[in-house]
């Protein structure tokens, strides 16, 4: 009796075959659908990044690549004063950009989430358009504004307020900060807006009912609950801006050069790919560590608000 049952079970499985297996197993179906994407992303994202990491442990002599393991590139990346200065400046600039952008974006996102009622959609579109439009052109616009003959200088001169162009506007770290803060503004709005929009309004009413004023309500309810959005925005800005190339090239001048500019040089025709790879890996590692530490620190700080 037991054997016949086992037999019919066996027959059923073999008869039904692969299609039945796919139908029966949700995870198999899911993996089959994810398969093509994962293959492409592994080939075009994971493999290149792995190779980049490998390159950073190799070396280049003239035109030939030496694939023996070495830490030489990292030693050079960290020991040479000019590289260290670039790391420091890149991280410093992107930290300021991150803080400024998030602080400027928060009230904007708050306004749309809590004060706009009917025309939310229009506000959101207005705020997302810059997110999708040409980054290069948005940066270029600031070159037009801050340049020697640019909008500000020529505007002030034609108004008679100054007699010679102000030279300190363009080609310095401040110009980089202003330009980046503008170019990345849209990236901060959306994550913060989404986290604010999710907050259940009755929580704020409950806090008011329990005796909290507007300021305490904000500090005890709104801010902690919107923290994931704030942190998401900060990471989304801090990580890519540290490695930004276009902005320092266009408005940074020699004092505004950042780490990406030197990495680009290393990957030019005459460059040194292993050293460039090590510089890229090192900057990503530093960005990663700083991000993790500051996210933890901010979480702890906000967690203290009771």
């Amino acid at each position: 009796m037991a054997t016949t049952e086992a037999d019919t079970e066996h027959q059923r499985v073999s008869k039904a075959g692969i299609t039945a297996f796919l139908r029966r197993s949700e995870s198999a179906r899911g993996l089959a659908l994810l398969g093509p994407t994962m293959v492409i992303m592994v080939l075009a994202l994971a493999a290149p990044l792995g190779l980049l990491a490998a390159y950073s442990f190799w070396s280049q002599h003239g035109w030939t690549l030496d694939t023996h393991f070495t830490l030489d590139q990292y030693t050079r990346a960290f020991s040479r004063q000019s590289y260290r200065a670039l790391f420091y400046r890149s991280l410093w600039i992107s930290s300021i950009v991150t803080v400024v952008t998030v602080l400027l974006a928060y009230p904007m996102a708050y306004f749309v989430a809590f004060r706009v009622e009917k025309s939310k959609f229009i506000w959101l579109i207005l705020l997302t358009i810059p997110f999708w439009t040409s980054y290069l052109l948005r940066v270029f616009a600031w070159k037009v504004i801050l340049g020697y003959n640019g909008v500000i200088n020529s505007g002030l001169m034609s108004l008679g307020l100054i007699h010679a162009p102000l030279e300190f506007l363009l080609y310095n770290p401040t110009a980089v900060v202003v330009t980046l803060a503008h170019a990345w503004a849209a990236f901060a709005i959306l994550p913060i807006y989404v986290s604010l929009e999710k907050i259940d309004r009755s929580l704020l009413e409950a806090a008011a009912d329990l005796g909290d004023g507007a300021v305490r309500r904000f500090l005890r309810i709104t801010l902690p609950l919107s923290l994931p959005g704030v942190l998401g925005a900060a990471v989304l800005i801090f990580v890519p801006t540290t490695g930004d190339y276009v902005t320092p090239s266009l408005v940074g001048g020699s004092n505004g050069v950042m780490i990406a500019n030197i990495i680009e040089v290393m990957f030019d025709k005459i460059g040194n790919w292993p050293l460039g790879a090590a510089l890229a890996m090192a900057s990503m590692a530093m960005v990663g560590i700083i991000t993790l530490l500051s996210v933890q620190a901010i979480r702890l700080a906000v967690g203290k608000v009771k």
């Binding site: 994202l45 980049l52 989304l236 990580v239 890519p240 490695g243 190339y245 990957f267 900057s283």
Partner: peptide
């Protein structure tokens, strides 16, 4: 579908948002 490791795969696919473009380009 409940895909094993789905969250990890989603995180991996979203990685390009968190990597400087120059690194994607050179790698």
């Amino acid at each position: 579908y409940r895909v094993p490791g789905g969250t990890v795969m989603l995180g991996f696919v979203n990685l390009p948002l968190f990597i400087p473009e120059i690194v994607l380009g050179i790698s």
